[in-house]
Design a binder for these strands. Structure first.
Lengths: 223, 223
DNA sequence: GTTGATTTTTAAGAATTAATAATGGGTTTC
DNA sequence: GAAACCCATTATTAATTCTTAAAAATCAAC
C-alpha cells in the first residue's frame, strides 16, 4: 500500500484530503510542523510527501530540502503560495510537482499518481496476509525482511496471486509454471515446491494459512 | 544539447516560446499539425515534446497517445484547456506534466527541467551509496576519485539508476544496452560487464551492496 | 482399526546459473 | 608502430537451484 505523508496545519484540509487520498487506496499519515514532518519521514519512510509551505513552526521549503538531502522520496508542494517565484523555488529545491491551492481533487490524484509513476515508486504491491509481494522489485517481504524466494518459488506464488481464491489443480500449476510444451516434469516436483514455498512464507508451515491443500483437487490461496 | 519539439499552431506563441527555450540552451523544432508532429518525433527523436491540445488538423491527445505507444519521450501538455477534465485526461494518456495557458515563463522552464530530471533525460547528480554519479559530466566518483568507468560500464550503471529498485532481467539489460535490433550478444558478455562494474564501484566486489544478483531473475540496484 | 490413495517430508545427484579468469581482436593515442 | 585500452568471447570454476526417488505421514472409506 502506498504511504503518503501529508504535512499541513489546516485541520479542515487535513480531514478532507485524508479522506480523498484514502478513498483512492493510499495510506495517509499527517504531520503539522517541521519537526513532526521530518520525524515522520524517518520513522515511516513514506512513498510520497504532500507538503504545505506555510507551517505553524516555519517554512515548508526547509522540510523539502531536509528530505531531499537524505532520502529519495518524492515531494509535491501543495500550497496557497501559487506565485511564480515560490513555484520556481520549490522546483529548485528538488520538488517533483507544485500544486496551488485550492486544488482540484481529481487533478491532485492524477498528479500524485503521475509522480509515483515517474519516480518508479509505484511498485505493483500485493498484500497476502503479512506478506508483501512487489512485482517490480521481484520480492516477497515479511516484516521488512526479504524471504528470498527462488525463481520458481516466486513464479508459483505469483500464479496463486493471479488466481486468488480459485482451486488450482496440479496440472494447471504444472502447465502454468513448467510450460515447456510436451515436456513433462515429475508430478512430485510441484509438491516439493509447494513445501518449499510454504516453509518460506507460512508462519507455521505445518498448518498453512496461505496455501491451502484441497485434497483430490489441488491447492488454493484464499486471503 | 537537449532537443525540444514544440507542437503548436499559434505563430506568436511559437516565436515567443522558441526564443525562451533557446535562451535556456534548448534546441527547438516546431510542428503545427498532427502529421507534422509525429513525423518530427520519428525523424528527430526529441528529448521532450511540448504539446498543444487544439491543433489545426485535430486533437493533441491523439498525438500524445501515438508518441507514448511507441517511444519513451516525455510529453508536456501546454494548452488553454486548463479544465480539470482535460488535465486528468492528459495524465491518463501518459503525459508527464500539464501546464495551462497563459503560462509563466520561469515556471515553464522549471517544469520542463523537472520532467527532464525525472525521466533521466538530463544531467543530474545522483548518490548511490558512497558513489556519486554525475550524468552531466558522465562520471562516477568515490571519495573524490574518478572510477573511470568505460562507456558500456557507465551505460549499464545508468540503466540501473533509471530503474532503481526494479529487478532487471538479463534480456532487459541486453536490450537496453546492446540494442542492435536482432543482433545478439553472447549472454555471458553481460555477466562479464556486471563483474567489471562491480569491481569498480563496489567496496567489496565479492559481497556486492549496490548491484545485487537475483538468481533466476536478473540484477537490481536497491539503495 | 485396516486399507489404499493422496499428500508431505527428506535427502541427494543432476542441471542450471552466475562468477571468475584468461584470450584475442580492434581502436585510439602518443 | 607500440602501448594502452576497450570490447566480446571462451573456458573454467563455484554456487545455488531444480528434479527425482523413496520413505513417512495424513486422510477417507470401508
Amino acid at each position: 500500500m502506498t504511504k503518503i505523508l501529508l504535512v499541513e496545519d489546516d485541520k479542515s484540509i487535513i480531514s478532507n484530503l485524508s479522506e480523498l487520498l484514502m478513498s483512492e487506496g493510499f495510506s495517509v499519515r499527517t504531520a503539522v510542523g517541521q519537526r513532526d514532518a521530518i520525524a515522520s519521514v524517518e520513522q515511516d519512510q513514506p512513498d510520497l510527501v504532500l507538503l504545505d509551505i506555510c507551517l505553524a513552526d516555519g517554512n515548508g521549503f526547509a522540510v523539502c530540502s531536509a528530505i531531499k538531502s537524505v532520502y529519495n522520496i518524492p515531494v509535491i508542494f501543495l500550497t496557497a503560495s501559487g506565485d511564480e517565484y515560490s513555484t520556481v523555488t520549490g522546483f529548485d529545491l528538488g520538488a517533483d510537482d507544485y500544486i496551488p491551492k485550492p486544488f482540484r481533487p481529481r487533478e491532485l490524484i492524477s498528479r500524485i499518481k503521475n509522480i509515483l509513476r515517474l519516480t518508479g515508486s509505484i511498485g505493483a504491491v500485493i498484500q497476502l496476509g503479512d506478506i508483501t509481494v512487489d512485482t517490480i522489485k521481484g520480492t516477497a517481504v515479511r516484516n521488512g525482511k526479504d524471504l528470498y524466494l527462488s525463481a520458481l518459488e516466486y513464479r508459483l506464488l505469483l500464479t496463486f496471486i493471479n488466481n486468488r481464491g480459485a482451486v488450482l489443480s496440479r496440472n494447471q500449476l504444472l502447465e502454468s509454471i513448467w510450460d515447456i510444451a510436451g515436456e513433462f516434469v515429475n508430478d512430485n516436483t510441484l509438491t516439493v515446491y509447494i513445501k518449499r514455498l510454504r516453509d518460506k512464507i507460512e508462519t507455521d508451515p505445518q498448518n498453512p494459512l496461505i496455501i491451502k491443500t484441497v485434497r483430490g483437487m489441488g491447492y488454493k490461496v484464499d486471503l
